[in-house]
Write a protein that binds this DNA or RNA. Structure first.
Lengths: 223, 223, 223, 223
DNA sequence: CATGAATGAGGGTTCATTCAT
DNA sequence: TATGAATGAACCCTCATTCAT
């Protein structure tokens, strides 16, 4: 009721995080513009001053999530000095960290109803993060740690597989099943990149053990 | 308006394929029961004589699609005598064949809006087809063609990666990009399964060249 | 599925009691022709062979209920020899007995949704039972037990009041409140009929105490 | 189609009276939200801006009707100075006045299908008006005009009887029959309250004759 | 920039009734 | 008489979007 005026960008972010909060609770499919407006403390009409449509909001949210991931990964890559194996594992961990972080935007993607959002994010992720990691692999190829012909395509496939098989709550893996698939994924990645056997696995265990320098903010391990 | 009575199963299939047709055109999310009924040439109420709800229809469609895939793969595996590499490639090709086939049910999954359907199918696919292919790999391990610790987890990861990276029209790969990713996938699979370098790639090329015996009905290569 | 042919009247009764059963459980407003047909073990179309419409069924049910009440009351009046006060109390008790009896038709009326049915029954009751009781009162006027100008109008008013105030579960009286209203009703009736003070009250207590001869089947007292 | 904005309360009342109009014509059970919206000159969605559901509307209508009655009665009681007999008769007349008034809300209750509404109103009426009249009777007991043990229970019974027997158009009494029942009701009330014979009847006739001071707005006599 | 009442097409679902068999 | 698949109008309700203020 009070008519508080704010710069467009501030309002947008407020709306975005209000939406994220609701999405987390009820899933994107079950949230109406009405609810978002109420949660953001604005009138319904104001929503349309900042977003063209509901679809627009969804798109921007997915974008924001992936951007956060990319930034996290970039920071890790830039900040880490050590064997490429470790860098890679840390980067993959940083990826998951965003999902695990309290950041509402990211967690919103986990709900069963948000499939479309999730998928968009996955695709953007493969497209955006792929090149970053491909850079790491390139370096690894130079140092002789890795040996692979087409690093980009390869890591993109691996990101895709991981996103669907491990990142998707719908599979409902038991902890055991999940662990087996995680380990198989590491071994497969080792081979796919032509890395020395056990090199990724041991790097992963090292990361799990102590917080390696350069880890992303949350400090949480990969899922 | 004319009142034609048909056996329940016939009507169900008619409705199912009417729905598939519309889904292909507009995406599952944008199709109403009204439209389906009109397309199927029945009254709206009749729809509810054969399907409990819209959700029910979606579930049955996803199920049908995956079942078709599983059958195709099984047929290929059973009917093929030759090196496991080839069997595997043929099986993967058969998988795609269902999607590529004219079968309306399968094609319906391709639309951008059908994410939920697609995802259900993907998950069911990984769960159902995984074990079938794991069997082929097991045999390969015995013959020495493959060497891998946990065939099921590994092939499931590969199926997941393939489903998202290659099966998803949203990526919008150019033909070149798509080709590179396909090749990288094959190389990755070779390494992941501990197969001899080039073994899968050459098997794939062989399949492309001539219709190997036991190929699925459509005869089309992998997407 | 088996096509058993039965005389129309038998079927009607079967359907009627199937409906009564369902009404008792879910209320008349929540029961569909479909359900009734299923419960009666017939096809939906068959329903319309015996009842013109749903409305028709409701009407016949209300009629049946009141007929049962009237018969009960008539039997009591005919079978009882004693002071009119007692006859009257017994008759009123018999009225309630039908409602309390297991007779599904009657109990169906108690559900909150069945208001229309209940009302029809009430009206029919006032119209049908009124004259019966008026006869008793007439006799009472002759014996000097009662003194009232217009027995029919009077007893109809009392029946109406009782039906709404005491017979309606929607009031939600506490046992105490209910008791007070019952006693006030008896006193009011005494005065209205010009009966000797306490005559009806004590007759009522007598009926409560021992099952007076001529009581209706259930033997249960008035509500 | 033209978009006219009105204060919420105004709209609510407009909708309410549009509904009342339709209810009067077709009965509450046969009126859809669609119709109400059309009659009120608003869009269907607007209806749900002011009423949570159809049920909500019904509840508010019943409430409004009884509130009007209670107010009328209260005004009469407060404004009248004279023998309790007369106050009582005036109050009962005021009750009917609301029903008889042109007030669409009240008239809506008259239709055969509105049983649920009517019943709710009846119950609320007995509960709300009962205590008001009981107060009058209490006073009468003090002045010696009345003599009754439990005024509340007694007057509630009488209200209930009157509501069903006289207020219900379904009985379809002929004018004669109606008159007889009205007179019997008065006599019964006299006796029930321990009033002097003819006291209520003559008060009633007095009220009929000239508009006694303090009568409700409509000035119409009891139905 | 902000408001929020108003819009109205569209959603899924039910169900009394019909009719070809 | 009996069947039950088919009908389709009607129902209640939601919600993305608009627009007068």
């Amino acid at each position: 009721m009070p008519r508080t005026s704010k710069p467009s960008e501030v309002r947008s972010v407020e709306i975005l995080s209000a939406a994220a909060r609701l999405f987390r609770q009820h899933g994107a499919g079950a949230v109406s513009v009405d609810q978002i407006a109420r949660e953001a403390g604005i009138a319904k009409g104001t929503f349309y001053l900042h977003f063209q449509s509901m679809r627009d909001l969804l798109a921007r949210m997915a974008e924001a999530a992936v951007t956060a991931m990319a930034e996290n990964v970039e920071r890790v890559i830039a900040g880490h000095e050590g064997p490429p194996c470790e860098t890679l594992v840390l980067a993959l961990a940083a990826l998951k960290a965003v999902e695990t972080d309290n950041a509402p935007l990211t967690q919103a993607l986990d709900h069963p109803d948000n499939v479309e959002l999730q998928e968009r994010a996955n695709i953007a992720l493969v497209r955006k993060i792929g090149p970053l990691l491909a850079g790491v692999i390139d370096r690894g190829c130079e140092t002789g740690d890795f040996a692979v012909e087409d690093p980009l395509s390869t890591i993109q496939f691996i990101l895709a597989g991981q996103a669907l098989l491990l990142g998707n709550p719908r599979f409902g893996w038991s902890p055991d099943e999940h662990g087996m698939r995680l380990m198989a994924t590491l071994r497969l990645t080792e081979r796919a990149l032509g890395a020395r056997p056990d090199s990724l696995v041991s790097a992963f265990l090292a990361v799990l053990a102590g917080a390696a320098p350069g880890t992303a903010g949350s400090g949480k391990g990969p899922s």
